[in-house]
Protein backbone atom coordinates (compact mmCIF):
# COMPACT_ATOMS: atom_id res chain seq x y z
CA UNK A 1 0.00 0.00 0.00
CA UNK A 2 2.73 2.37 0.97
CA UNK A 3 4.84 1.74 -2.14
CA UNK A 4 1.81 2.44 -4.29
CA UNK A 5 1.42 5.83 -2.66
CA UNK A 6 5.06 6.73 -3.32
CA UNK A 7 4.80 5.91 -7.00
CA UNK A 8 1.69 8.04 -7.19
CA UNK A 9 3.40 11.15 -5.87
CA UNK A 10 6.11 10.80 -8.53
CA UNK A 11 3.63 10.16 -11.29
CA UNK A 12 1.58 13.11 -10.11
CA UNK A 13 4.40 15.50 -11.02
CA UNK A 14 4.55 14.10 -14.53
CA UNK A 15 0.76 14.28 -14.80
CA UNK A 16 0.92 17.95 -13.82
CA UNK A 17 3.58 18.52 -16.49
CA UNK A 18 1.54 16.85 -19.20
CA UNK A 19 -1.65 18.64 -18.22
CA UNK A 20 0.21 21.94 -18.14
CA UNK A 21 1.56 21.31 -21.63
CA UNK A 22 -1.90 20.52 -22.98
CA UNK A 23 -3.47 23.54 -21.29
CA UNK A 24 -0.72 25.83 -22.53
CA UNK A 25 -1.04 24.56 -26.06
CA UNK A 26 -4.81 24.83 -25.93
CA UNK A 27 -4.56 28.45 -24.81
CA UNK A 28 -2.18 29.07 -27.70
CA UNK A 29 -4.62 27.50 -30.14
CA UNK A 30 -7.45 29.58 -28.75
CA UNK A 31 -5.66 32.95 -28.64
CA UNK A 32 -3.59 32.67 -31.81
CA UNK A 33 -6.02 30.62 -33.90
CA UNK A 34 -5.67 33.13 -36.73
CA UNK A 35 -1.89 32.76 -36.83
CA UNK A 36 -1.85 29.07 -37.56
CA UNK A 37 -1.21 27.86 -34.05
CA UNK A 38 -3.84 25.16 -34.33
CA UNK A 39 -2.27 23.58 -37.41
CA UNK A 40 -0.77 20.15 -37.00
CA UNK A 41 2.43 21.47 -38.60
CA UNK A 42 2.96 23.99 -35.80
CA UNK A 43 2.76 21.16 -33.33
CA UNK A 44 5.21 19.09 -35.36
CA UNK A 45 7.56 22.05 -35.61
CA UNK A 46 7.92 21.85 -31.85
CA UNK A 47 9.53 18.45 -32.37
CA UNK A 48 11.59 19.56 -35.34
CA UNK A 49 13.17 22.58 -33.68
CA UNK A 50 13.72 20.78 -30.38
CA UNK A 51 14.95 17.41 -31.66
CA UNK A 52 18.49 18.11 -30.45
CA UNK A 53 17.27 19.30 -27.07
CA UNK A 54 15.19 16.13 -26.60
CA UNK A 55 18.29 13.95 -27.10
CA UNK A 56 20.37 16.10 -24.77
CA UNK A 57 17.65 16.19 -22.12
CA UNK A 58 17.51 12.37 -22.14
CA UNK A 59 21.24 12.20 -21.41
CA UNK A 60 20.96 14.94 -18.81
CA UNK A 61 18.15 13.01 -17.14
CA UNK A 62 20.37 9.93 -16.78
CA UNK A 63 23.17 11.99 -15.26
CA UNK A 64 20.84 13.81 -12.90
CA UNK A 65 19.47 10.46 -11.86
CA UNK A 66 22.87 9.63 -10.36
CA UNK A 67 22.71 12.91 -8.43
CA UNK A 68 25.18 14.65 -10.74
CA UNK A 69 24.96 17.28 -13.43
CA UNK A 70 26.48 17.79 -16.86
CA UNK A 71 26.83 21.41 -17.92
CA UNK A 72 29.19 20.69 -20.79
CA UNK A 73 26.42 19.71 -23.23
CA UNK A 74 25.87 23.12 -24.83
CA UNK A 75 29.54 23.58 -25.64
CA UNK A 76 29.86 20.00 -26.82
CA UNK A 77 27.05 20.62 -29.29
CA UNK A 78 28.81 23.74 -30.53
CA UNK A 79 32.00 21.71 -31.00
CA UNK A 80 30.12 18.92 -32.82
CA UNK A 81 28.47 21.40 -35.16
CA UNK A 82 31.80 23.09 -35.81
CA UNK A 83 33.54 19.78 -36.58
CA UNK A 84 30.70 18.83 -38.93
CA UNK A 85 30.69 22.21 -40.63
CA UNK A 86 34.47 22.47 -40.87
CA UNK A 87 35.04 18.84 -41.77
CA UNK A 88 32.39 18.58 -44.45
CA UNK A 89 32.31 22.20 -45.54
CA UNK A 90 35.98 23.17 -45.60
CA UNK A 91 37.95 19.92 -45.58
CA UNK A 92 35.50 18.04 -47.75
CA UNK A 93 35.31 14.93 -45.58
CA UNK A 94 32.62 12.41 -46.47
CA UNK A 95 29.46 12.48 -44.46
CA UNK A 96 29.28 9.15 -42.63
CA UNK A 97 32.89 8.97 -41.32
CA UNK A 98 32.51 12.51 -39.98
CA UNK A 99 29.38 11.54 -38.10
CA UNK A 100 31.12 8.46 -36.69
CA UNK A 101 34.01 10.70 -35.65
CA UNK A 102 31.55 12.95 -33.81
CA UNK A 103 30.05 10.00 -31.94
CA UNK A 104 33.52 8.72 -30.99
CA UNK A 105 34.50 12.17 -29.75
CA UNK A 106 31.34 12.18 -27.64
CA UNK A 107 32.23 8.85 -26.05
CA UNK A 108 35.82 9.94 -25.32
CA UNK A 109 34.59 13.22 -23.86
CA UNK A 110 32.20 11.34 -21.60
CA UNK A 111 34.88 8.82 -20.68
CA UNK A 112 37.23 11.53 -19.41
CA UNK A 113 34.50 13.34 -17.49
CA UNK A 114 33.07 10.13 -16.08
CA UNK A 115 36.50 8.94 -14.99
CA UNK A 116 37.21 12.20 -13.16
CA UNK A 117 33.80 12.17 -11.48
CA UNK A 118 33.39 8.47 -10.77
CA UNK A 119 36.92 7.34 -10.00
CA UNK A 120 38.62 10.51 -8.73
CA UNK A 121 35.55 11.78 -6.86
CA UNK A 122 35.74 15.28 -8.30
CA UNK A 123 32.54 17.32 -8.12
CA UNK A 124 30.44 16.88 -11.27
CA UNK A 125 29.82 20.60 -11.55
CA UNK A 126 33.52 21.50 -11.65
CA UNK A 127 34.47 18.67 -13.98
CA UNK A 128 31.79 19.40 -16.51
CA UNK A 129 32.47 23.12 -16.20
CA UNK A 130 36.02 22.41 -17.32
CA UNK A 131 34.55 20.28 -20.11
CA UNK A 132 32.36 23.20 -21.07
CA UNK A 133 35.33 25.59 -21.25
CA UNK A 134 37.34 23.05 -23.17
CA UNK A 135 34.70 22.28 -25.79
CA UNK A 136 33.80 25.93 -26.33
CA UNK A 137 37.47 26.85 -26.62
CA UNK A 138 38.18 24.01 -29.02
CA UNK A 139 35.32 25.24 -31.20
CA UNK A 140 37.16 28.54 -31.48
CA UNK A 141 40.47 26.77 -32.10
CA UNK A 142 38.96 24.90 -35.06
CA UNK A 143 37.52 28.04 -36.57
CA UNK A 144 36.30 31.39 -35.28
CA UNK A 145 34.08 32.18 -38.26
CA UNK A 146 30.54 31.09 -38.81
CA UNK A 147 30.60 28.22 -41.30
CA UNK A 148 27.66 26.79 -43.13
CA UNK A 149 27.20 23.55 -45.03
CA UNK A 150 25.84 23.94 -48.54
CA UNK A 151 24.50 21.45 -51.01
CA UNK A 152 27.64 21.57 -53.17
CA UNK A 153 29.85 20.72 -50.23
CA UNK A 154 28.02 17.68 -49.03
CA UNK A 155 24.98 16.53 -50.94
CA UNK A 156 24.19 13.57 -48.69
CA UNK A 157 24.11 15.57 -45.46
CA UNK A 158 22.15 18.28 -47.21
CA UNK A 159 19.58 15.80 -48.44
CA UNK A 160 19.16 14.42 -44.91
CA UNK A 161 18.62 17.89 -43.55
CA UNK A 162 15.95 18.66 -46.12
CA UNK A 163 14.25 15.29 -46.18
CA UNK A 164 10.59 15.47 -45.28
CA UNK A 165 8.62 12.54 -44.00
CA UNK A 166 5.00 13.24 -44.81
CA UNK A 167 2.17 12.34 -42.52
CA UNK A 168 -1.25 11.22 -43.83
CA UNK A 169 -2.80 13.93 -45.96
CA UNK A 170 -6.04 14.28 -44.01
CA UNK A 171 -4.09 16.10 -41.27
CA UNK A 172 -3.19 18.85 -43.72
CA UNK A 173 -4.82 22.18 -44.34
CA UNK A 174 -5.24 24.52 -47.27
CA UNK A 175 -3.16 27.68 -47.08
CA UNK A 176 -4.32 31.10 -48.24
CA UNK A 177 -3.01 30.46 -51.74
CA UNK A 178 -5.32 27.47 -52.04
CA UNK A 179 -2.48 24.94 -51.92
CA UNK A 180 -2.90 21.87 -49.74
CA UNK A 181 -0.11 21.65 -47.16
CA UNK A 182 0.61 18.16 -45.91
CA UNK A 183 2.20 18.08 -42.47
CA UNK A 184 5.68 16.59 -42.34
CA UNK A 185 8.47 15.79 -39.90
CA UNK A 186 12.22 15.74 -40.40
CA UNK A 187 14.44 12.67 -39.90
CA UNK A 188 15.82 14.32 -36.74
CA UNK A 189 12.44 13.89 -35.09
CA UNK A 190 12.56 10.15 -35.71
CA UNK A 191 16.07 10.03 -34.20
CA UNK A 192 14.94 11.99 -31.15
CA UNK A 193 11.88 9.83 -30.54
CA UNK A 194 13.97 6.70 -30.99
CA UNK A 195 16.40 7.99 -28.37
CA UNK A 196 13.56 8.58 -25.93
CA UNK A 197 12.19 5.06 -26.42
CA UNK A 198 15.60 3.40 -26.14
CA UNK A 199 16.55 5.32 -23.00
CA UNK A 200 13.15 4.59 -21.48
CA UNK A 201 13.66 0.86 -22.04
CA UNK A 202 17.29 0.96 -20.87
CA UNK A 203 16.36 2.72 -17.64
CA UNK A 204 13.39 0.54 -16.94
CA UNK A 205 14.44 -2.95 -17.93
CA UNK A 206 18.23 -3.29 -18.03
CA UNK A 207 20.71 -3.93 -15.25
CA UNK A 208 22.54 -0.72 -16.07
CA UNK A 209 19.36 1.35 -15.80
CA UNK A 210 18.46 -0.26 -12.51
CA UNK A 211 21.89 0.43 -11.07
CA UNK A 212 21.61 4.09 -12.08
CA UNK A 213 18.39 4.32 -10.08
CA UNK A 214 20.03 2.60 -7.13
CA UNK A 215 23.09 4.87 -7.16
CA UNK A 216 20.90 7.95 -7.33
CA UNK A 217 18.62 6.72 -4.56
CA UNK A 218 21.36 6.08 -2.05
CA UNK A 219 25.00 5.68 -2.95
CA UNK A 220 26.03 3.95 0.25
CA UNK A 221 23.33 1.33 0.08
CA UNK A 222 24.07 0.78 -3.61
CA UNK A 223 27.69 0.06 -2.70
CA UNK A 224 26.57 -2.31 0.04
CA UNK A 225 24.31 -4.09 -2.41
CA UNK A 226 27.46 -4.89 -4.36
CA UNK A 227 26.86 -2.51 -7.25
CA UNK A 228 29.84 -0.91 -8.89
CA UNK A 229 28.99 2.72 -8.19
CA UNK A 230 32.08 4.12 -9.89
CA UNK A 231 31.47 2.25 -13.11
CA UNK A 232 27.78 3.16 -13.14
CA UNK A 233 28.66 6.83 -12.86
CA UNK A 234 31.28 6.50 -15.59
CA UNK A 235 28.73 4.94 -17.93
CA UNK A 236 26.11 7.56 -17.08
CA UNK A 237 28.46 10.34 -18.18
CA UNK A 238 29.52 8.45 -21.30
CA UNK A 239 25.85 8.01 -22.14
CA UNK A 240 25.19 11.72 -21.61
CA UNK A 241 28.03 12.84 -23.87
CA UNK A 242 27.12 10.24 -26.48
CA UNK A 243 23.49 11.35 -26.57
CA UNK A 244 24.74 14.90 -26.66
CA UNK A 245 26.70 14.06 -29.80
CA UNK A 246 23.56 12.61 -31.38
CA UNK A 247 21.78 15.79 -30.29
CA UNK A 248 24.59 17.81 -31.86
CA UNK A 249 24.09 16.06 -35.20
CA UNK A 250 20.34 16.74 -35.00
CA UNK A 251 21.08 20.35 -34.12
CA UNK A 252 23.46 20.68 -37.03
CA UNK A 253 20.91 19.16 -39.39
CA UNK A 254 18.53 21.91 -38.28
CA UNK A 255 20.93 24.83 -38.51
CA UNK A 256 23.35 23.54 -41.17
CA UNK A 257 26.07 25.70 -39.69
CA UNK A 258 28.72 25.87 -37.02
CA UNK A 259 29.83 28.85 -34.97
CA UNK A 260 31.44 29.57 -31.62
CA UNK A 261 28.32 31.14 -30.19
CA UNK A 262 26.07 28.21 -31.08
CA UNK A 263 23.91 26.48 -28.49
CA UNK A 264 24.87 28.87 -25.70
CA UNK A 265 22.83 28.23 -22.58
CA UNK A 266 21.67 24.90 -23.99
CA UNK A 267 22.75 23.08 -20.84
CA UNK A 268 20.43 25.21 -18.76
CA UNK A 269 17.53 24.51 -21.14
CA UNK A 270 18.22 20.80 -20.79
CA UNK A 271 18.38 21.00 -17.00
CA UNK A 272 15.22 23.10 -16.87
CA UNK A 273 13.42 20.60 -19.12
CA UNK A 274 14.45 17.72 -16.90
CA UNK A 275 13.28 19.54 -13.78
CA UNK A 276 9.96 20.54 -15.30
CA UNK A 277 9.61 16.94 -16.44
CA UNK A 278 9.71 15.76 -12.85
CA UNK A 279 13.34 14.75 -12.35
CA UNK A 280 14.20 14.95 -8.68
CA UNK A 281 17.43 16.91 -8.50
CA UNK A 282 18.93 14.99 -5.66
CA UNK A 283 18.75 11.93 -7.87
CA UNK A 284 16.80 8.71 -7.72
CA UNK A 285 13.53 9.80 -9.28
CA UNK A 286 13.19 10.34 -12.97
CA UNK A 287 11.14 9.70 -16.04
CA UNK A 288 12.40 10.25 -19.55
CA UNK A 289 8.86 10.74 -20.82
CA UNK A 290 8.48 13.62 -18.38
CA UNK A 291 11.69 15.19 -19.64
CA UNK A 292 10.36 15.05 -23.17
CA UNK A 293 7.28 16.94 -22.07
CA UNK A 294 9.56 19.41 -20.29
CA UNK A 295 11.23 20.13 -23.62
CA UNK A 296 7.82 20.51 -25.27
CA UNK A 297 6.70 23.03 -22.65
CA UNK A 298 9.88 24.99 -23.19
CA UNK A 299 9.25 24.95 -26.92
CA UNK A 300 5.62 25.97 -26.53
CA UNK A 301 6.59 28.99 -24.44
CA UNK A 302 9.04 30.08 -27.12
CA UNK A 303 6.49 29.54 -29.88
CA UNK A 304 3.83 31.47 -27.97
CA UNK A 305 6.16 34.43 -27.51
CA UNK A 306 7.34 34.47 -31.12
CA UNK A 307 3.80 34.01 -32.47
CA UNK A 308 2.66 37.00 -30.49
CA UNK A 309 5.33 39.08 -32.18
CA UNK A 310 4.90 42.10 -29.93
CA UNK A 311 6.34 40.63 -26.76
CA UNK A 312 10.06 40.93 -26.06
CA UNK A 313 11.90 37.65 -26.43
CA UNK A 314 13.08 37.91 -22.85
CA UNK A 315 9.54 37.08 -21.70
CA UNK A 316 10.17 33.50 -22.81
CA UNK A 317 13.12 33.26 -20.41
CA UNK A 318 11.11 34.78 -17.59
CA UNK A 319 8.22 32.38 -18.19
CA UNK A 320 10.57 29.40 -18.21
CA UNK A 321 12.18 30.57 -14.99
CA UNK A 322 8.78 31.09 -13.34
CA UNK A 323 7.73 27.59 -14.37
CA UNK A 324 11.01 26.19 -13.09
CA UNK A 325 10.43 27.94 -9.77
CA UNK A 326 6.90 26.52 -9.59
CA UNK A 327 8.03 22.95 -10.21
CA UNK A 328 10.95 23.14 -7.81
CA UNK A 329 8.71 24.41 -5.03
CA UNK A 330 6.14 21.72 -5.88
CA UNK A 331 8.86 19.07 -5.60
CA UNK A 332 9.97 20.29 -2.22
CA UNK A 333 6.37 20.46 -0.99
CA UNK A 334 5.87 16.83 -2.04
CA UNK A 335 9.11 15.86 -0.36
CA UNK A 336 7.95 17.59 2.82
CA UNK A 337 4.67 15.69 2.91
CA UNK A 338 6.44 12.43 2.20
CA UNK A 339 8.81 13.01 5.12
CA UNK A 340 5.91 13.86 7.42
CA UNK A 341 4.04 10.70 6.48
CA UNK A 342 7.10 8.61 7.19
Amino acid sequence: MKTKKKINSNNLLIMITIIMFIVMYAIGCFVYAGKGFAHVQTFLNLFITNAGLICVACGMTCVMLTGGIDISVGSLIAMDCMILAHGMGVQGWPCIPTIILILVIGVIFGLVQGFLIGYLNIQPFITTMAGMFFARGMTAVICTDQLSITQEQNALFYSWANAKIYLPAFLGYTNNKGKVMTPYVRPTVIIALLVVVVIFIVLKYTKFGRSIYAVGGNETSATMMGLNVKRTKLFAYILSSFLCSIGGICYCLNTMSGSVQQAKGFEMDAIASSVIGGTRLTGGVVNVIGSRFGVMINGTINTLVTTNGKLLSSWANIATAALLCFFIILQSVFAYFKNRNN
Binding site: I122, T127, F134, T144
Partner: peptide, 25 residues
Protein backbone atom coordinates in the same frame (compact mmCIF):
# COMPACT_ATOMS: atom_id res chain seq x y z
CA UNK B 1 45.39 34.03 -27.91
CA UNK B 2 41.87 35.11 -28.84
CA UNK B 3 39.19 35.51 -26.18
CA UNK B 4 37.28 32.60 -27.64
CA UNK B 5 40.24 30.23 -27.50
CA UNK B 6 41.43 31.14 -24.00
CA UNK B 7 38.93 28.76 -22.30
CA UNK B 8 40.88 25.70 -23.51
CA UNK B 9 43.87 26.68 -21.38
CA UNK B 10 41.57 27.56 -18.49
CA UNK B 11 39.90 24.15 -18.69
CA UNK B 12 43.22 22.30 -18.60
CA UNK B 13 44.35 24.35 -15.60
CA UNK B 14 41.11 23.62 -13.75
CA UNK B 15 41.38 19.88 -14.35
CA UNK B 16 45.03 19.80 -13.25
CA UNK B 17 44.21 21.69 -10.06
CA UNK B 18 41.23 19.58 -9.07
CA UNK B 19 43.02 16.33 -9.84
CA UNK B 20 46.00 17.35 -7.72
CA UNK B 21 43.64 18.37 -4.92
CA UNK B 22 41.46 15.26 -5.03
CA UNK B 23 41.82 12.93 -2.03
CA UNK B 24 41.99 9.86 -4.28
CA UNK B 25 45.02 11.22 -6.11
Amino acid sequence: VSTDQAPVVKAIIVILIVVVQSPVF
